[in-house]
Design a protein around this nucleic acid. Structure first.
Lengths: 248, 248
DNA sequence: CGCAGATTTGATCGTCCTCAATTTATGTGG
DNA sequence: CCACATAAATTGAGGACGATCAAATCTGCG
């Protein structure tokens, strides 16, 4: 196994480029292989955006709002590609949820070298937009939803992103603590716990130890999450006027 | 003035390409010129992401969490480039805050045609990341900050993005209503109003009519927003272990 | 088996929401 | 130019949800 194994996997799987190719070599030069354990921070450049490929494991990207307040902005799992912003309004930290292997690149230099390759740029753009759309959904949840809706929505999101056991009541293994969940949802740990209890008492989920969650009733869980039924037409608020005018 | 004037301005100003060039012509074919008045919705494709260039005016991008709950995810001003996502978890709507002129493109097709041009792809990627970083900051605010901090932070953000009169106490002209501000900050209109009153009584701001705001004391406003002083080193929470291990 | 940390549960408090009533701003017609 | 109409913004009182503080219980691991 070559020493930049993880990077090569990344380049091949994500962009379909041969690591032996010139562009692969050039990008590989920028790579830093990092391994972190649970709770450890991945060092990123405070002055520039860092591009990260998470080969295996799971991480959380958190921001410090002030000394005692932290917001988890995103969770990442094996295969994810994302960026850690430079310090600006808030300070961001990338921290392992479990033992994780990742490859980091200085974003600016990576883009400079990859610019000539349409495939890579296209892939990066789409990934960036995925992250943006997910973040916007998070903003909607944080701004408009109750504690119960947020927790139910969180479980559904994890069910979609984590490997769940098959069957009518799939089981997932949460790699993050209740505290992490709270910091992600803008809730305190006690509130998260109480919502878990409510869902358990309602027969919608069951918990096994600290990390195991059985989703006993997915339809009802989705209902608790407060989303529209995606099969119904989303109603349009009456206060929006509908007269788009195409300029001749 | 050619009929795609706004589009040409967009292509030249943003990507530095000559609209007469082949690529300019190809992209111009995809453009739709739209003009909206205050409160009108810009029609976007529910099935695909729409790329939007806002030539002049101001808009809000809102999401419906449910019939009675809306979250404004971003405000845009003249010169901004952004995307309106297809319907997924939530339904997004782009609405004019005042009379606005904009050019829309089907994102997928635009990317297909622009892929061969590294400059354009690079510019799109950077804009997308800017939007992502701004959205993450919004998530931090929504998840962790009090009503007072959110309103103060909002005023600072608008001061940076809008044209403010010069001088020690700059004045800005908000194009959005108190209701819009509330929907953006995850607060009710009454709460926003009360926070404005508090800031006014503290001598930090002054209001003129519905839209005028004088920022009388920027340092104290920043203090109210609850950000770190950017000149101090952001403290590191003690629960984060710092032993990143570089793989040999 | 025992320990440390994570989670759950309980009681109380504070912030923001809700509902309702005024007051103020804007723009339209006299 | 002013009076009026309408919508927006402000103010007030009361209530609900989630935070806070405190204690008990459970989990996973040595």
């Amino acid at each position: 196994m070559p020493k930049l194994g993880s990077c090569n996997v990344f380049l091949r799987a994500t962009f379909g480029i041969d690591p032996g190719a010139e562009i692969g070599r050039q990008l590989g030069e920028l790579a830093t292989q990092v391994q972190v354990m649970r709770g450890q921070e991945v060092q990123t450049d405070p002055a520039d955006t860092t591009l990260v490929f998470l080969a295996s494991g799971a991480t959380k990207l958190g921001a410090q709002a002030s000394r005692e307040r932290h917001q988890i902005v995103a969770f990442h799992f094996g295969g994810d590609i994302f960026t850690v912003p430079a310090v600006s309004m808030h300070r961001y930290m990338l921290i392992g949820l479990c033992e994780s292997t990742l490859t980091t690149f200085p974003a600016r230099q990576f883009y400079d070298r990859a610019a000539s390759n349409p495939w890579i740029m296209r892939a990066l753009l789409e990934r960036s937009q995925t992250a943006l759309f997910r973040c916007r959904d998070k903003a909607v949840n944080l701004g408009q939803k109750s504690a119960g809706e947020r927790v139910a929505g969180f479980l559904l999101a994890m069910w979609e992103r984590l490997d769940a056991s098959e069957g009518p009541s799939p089981m997932i293994d949460l790699p993050m603590s209740r505290g992490d969940i709270g910091e992600s949802l803008g809730l305190k740990i006690e509130t998260v716990s109480r919502q878990f209890t409510k869902l358990r008492e309602a027969g919608i989920i069951d918990t096994h130890g600290r990390s195991g969650v059985s989703l006993l009733d997915l339809p009802r869980l989705a209902e608790q999450a407060g989303y529209y039924d995606r099969n119904t037409v989303p109603p349009r608020p009456e206060w929006v006027e509908r007269k788009p005018e195409l300029v001749p």
